[in-house]
């Protein structure tokens, strides 16, 4: 069964699920609305044997980075500072890559969220691997994964202020700076 056939079967129940315009590498890339993320993955896991979650990550599309996010030298990105690029949108994009170990098929699913109070359903019950991946995305972008039982920082120190990979991140000096 090819990716297009799977997509056609899924589109019957999830009309918001469409093929993405910009595919990631050569993977079949779909765009999924935030509301149906968990249902789509449940279906993929149970019906189409996509049993391995490769990764969960996110992108901030809101233009160039804030120079104040660099604690030591604010002039580190002079070219980028203040010049919004053509692709800038006020969204986060959560990217899931999931594969079926039996057939070797790999899918990329994208989900756009508004930057303000971004939240997406957690995949915790379906893929156990999503536990730390979602914690990392939360740590770096502040995206809430609803239904995650232990959503707290995983990589940065506990008293970290803000989420470092957001484009509007401003570094607050801590006890080690």
């Amino acid at each position: 069964m090819t990716a297009d056939e799977i997509l056609a079967k899924l589109q019957a129940s999830f009309p918001g699920l469409v093929k993405s315009e910009a595919p990631l590498k050569d993977y079949p890339t779909w765009t999924v609305p935030a509301g149906s993320v968990r249902a789509v993955f449940e279906r993929l896991h149970s019906k189409f044997s996509f049993n391995y979650l490769d990764m969960v990550t996110a992108t901030d599309w809101s233009g160039p980075a804030n120079p104040k996010g660099y604690p030591q030298s604010p002039a580190v990105t002079p070219a980028a500072a203040g010049a919004p690029s053509a692709t800038a949108k006020d969204v986060f994009e959560v990217v899931y890559i999931v594969s079926a170990l039996s057939t070797g098929m790999r899918l990329c699913l994208r989900c756009e969220l508004p930057r303000k109070e971004a939240a997406v359903p957690s995949l915790y019950g379906i893929f156990m691997a999503s536990d730390w991946q979602e914690r990392e995305v939360y740590d770096m972008y502040g995206i809430k994964f609803e239904g995650h039982p232990n959503l707290k920082r995983i990589l940065t120190q506990d008293d970290q202020q803000g989420h470092p990979l957001r484009k509007d991140y401003e570094h607050v000096a801590d006890k080690f700076d």
Binding site: Y70, P71, Q72, T156, Q157, Q160, P164, Y169, F176, D177
Partner: peptide, 14 residues
């Protein structure tokens, strides 16, 4: 990683 948000700038700070 001198400009990083997550790195101690020299272990002699601690």
């Amino acid at each position: 990683f001198y400009d990083s948000y997550a790195v101690v700038k020299g272990v002699d700070k601690i």
